[in-house]
Design a protein around this nucleic acid. Structure first.
Lengths: 346, 346
DNA sequence: GAGAGATCCGAGAGCGCTCTCACCCCTCGG
DNA sequence: CCGAGGGGTGAGAGCGCTCTCGGATCTCTC
């Protein structure tokens, strides 16, 4: 299991190179102002001793950690079942790595865990936080704000906290939903149903709003609440078929929901898209391509969302102060556009 | 974006409570030896000032971080595509959280990144590391060992490093494979093919060995190399059908591979299991249940593997020294049993 | 009621690093 | 050839915490 060995300190390197700690520090941190022969001697000493700076000591004085926490405020079962998260995480990871920042993943294990997370953030382990998938009644943003940790949210938090400094990255959920429904209308469909996502999340609410924007006086029985899972899609679809057997289109709050809906439609012998057209949301690959028929859906660039979240945070931390695009001071929220992807289901 | 505010220090709390730093430290760390009225005063001061200990300062002296790195030595595309990883991570996360340890996720972005990871581990950010999904030629274990970080591997590393202290958690891949093939034999199948996993990983090699244990003199044309992906499953299945149209069973190195194989079998009009029986490996839910027909497969408890990895590491770090099961000194590797799950495909 | 022993608390050193500031030496202009 | 100026280097303080150790206080016991 490889035992831990006492590491050489700056002091040791200094002694070996016959210089002061300050000089070694300068060389190690790439500051100039050390003449070449000396610098070389220091580098050799570092090499020979296998010196690696102690981060704890360093952060103690610099108050920087070069680490960012990613908080997923979701029951973990969902986190991993939903590829959405993975994509976003990937974007984040790329961006952070590019700026030499570490990613500290904080998974919450149920509600009580929020306090633990807040404690961790307040403990000064990380320079900032990226928070995902908040629910409306979630105490986390409140706690984080109190902890005073710079934060960027993924998805518009349904909460303003009285402060206007809340920064988030979101897709244009409402606009995307409108596009989806308009597309169905354009196909000549009139009885369009909507299976919502979990309505305690703003993304679900926004998509529902988009649906209603277009279907101003839709039959209320055509809207059924879901929760973004395939299981909910199935349940909701069954309910819809029972209530309104004459429906000719379904706009599902996401692709997973659509998958569930497709399954039930097939079960009931409804042909897609001939009898019922189906549109999803997310363009979650490869799922969206492999359904039968392949799913028409609203694409959002999830990885880009992640990347952007990280970039906004780092910018706020002055990490990329030198970057050319970094004019204009404090970062503000970003809404990414969506695009309709036509496949066979609608 | 919530600006960072100077945090109160131990000193401040001590001043407010009218005691020494030492006393506050004792109270905060739950050490006994502080009389109740005083302790209460300290707790109030902590509360009022919103004091949270500075971790950097703390680790500087204790040399503990209560954090563990999880290193995934896999091109990230695969990491997230494969639910395997998610399960294991979940087990790890649970166990770590239960012992108040943080999970630091290190994703490697290509080969060069190994150096970055090694540097991070050597930097003394974490108390130990959990490393996954190694490939045979991977330089990472070597680097990690040199960094002197206690480590537990997920899956037997195909590398011993000359030291015998390597600890890992693995499934009984070879035994599981034997069970799968014997099951097919028991079904009266004689022409059993095997689609391997990525043969630069020990799990794939072990499963192949298990296959050969039972099919001692199998037609070598019945073994095709894959890489654990559905795409490879399709390709390999096509090749197999071309080479040996008379095959009557397939043992796939994992469920994803089996999914690909099933697709191609259907395409070619072979009925499963009537014409060709198929067995997978992993019992990856829900995939394994939702294939058509539902997949017979070899189950391994992936989450438990993760949990166990974390437990072994923490034990090695003396975190759980008081735990009753913790007799017997240095932890050693664990091989978890597998079980055959019979569904419809074989 | 006094001494021994246990208990509680505070002073202070030190973890490994960064960063300021003062000092030294080297160079160059007059 | 001497003094001013500037760049290179080192001394030392201090980041916020833990932990040892000695002294003060308390509790018994006879």
């Amino acid at each position: 299991m490889t035992e831990t060995v006492p590491r050489p300190t700056l002091e040791a390197v200094a002694a070996r190179a016959g210089v002061s700690r300050a000089t070694v520090s300068r060389v190690v941190n790439g500051a100039d102002g050390v003449r070449e022969p000396l610098a070389e001697r220091v580098r050799r000493a570092v090499e020979e001793l296998g010196y690696v700076p102690n981060q704890a000591a360093r952060s103690l004085v610099t108050k920087r950690h070069d680490a960012v926490a990613v908080v997923v405020a979701e029951p973990e079962t969902r986190v991993f079942a939903d590829p959405f998260f993975a994509r976003q995480l990937r974007g984040i990871s790329k961006e952070l790595t590019a700026h030499d920042n570490q990613l500290v993943l904080l998974l919450t294990e149920g509600r009580d865990d929020h306090a633990r997370v807040a404690r961790y953030l307040a403990g000064g382990h990380v320079d900032g936080a990226l928070v995902f998938s908040l629910h409306l009644d979630d105490p986390l943003p409140e706690l984080i704000q109190r902890a005073g940790v710079p934060t960027v949210f993924g998805g518009r938090p349904g909460w303003s906290g009285g402060r206007d400094g809340v920064v988030y990255v979101d897709s244009d959920n409402r606009g995307g939903a409108r596009d989806a429904v308009r597309h169905l209308l354009g196909l000549g469909r009139g009885r369009i149903a909507h299976i919502t996502g979990a309505l305690d999340q703003t993304s679900a609410v926004d998509r529902l709003d988009g649906f209603r924007d277009v279907m101003v006086d839709a039959d209320p029985r055509l809207v059924v609440e879901g929760d973004f899972t395939p299981a909910a899609g199935e349940r909701a679809m069954r309910e819809l078929l029972g209530r309104c057997p004459d429906l000719d289109a379904v706009f599902a709050a996401n692709d997973l929901t659509a998958v569930g809906a497709l399954r039930v439609l097939r079960e009931h012998g409804r042909r897609v898209p001939d009898d019922v057209a189906v549109v999803g949301f997310d363009d979650m690959l490869p799922i969206a391509e492999q359904t039968d028929p392949p799913l028409t859906t609203v694409r959002q660039d999830i990885e880009e969302m992640g990347r952007l979240m990280a970039r906004l945070l780092l910018r706020g931390l002055d990490r990329t102060a030198a970057a050319p695009e970094n004019v204009g001071g404090t970062p503000s929220s970003v809404i990414l556009p969506t695009t309709l992807v036509r496949r066979a289901s609608a």
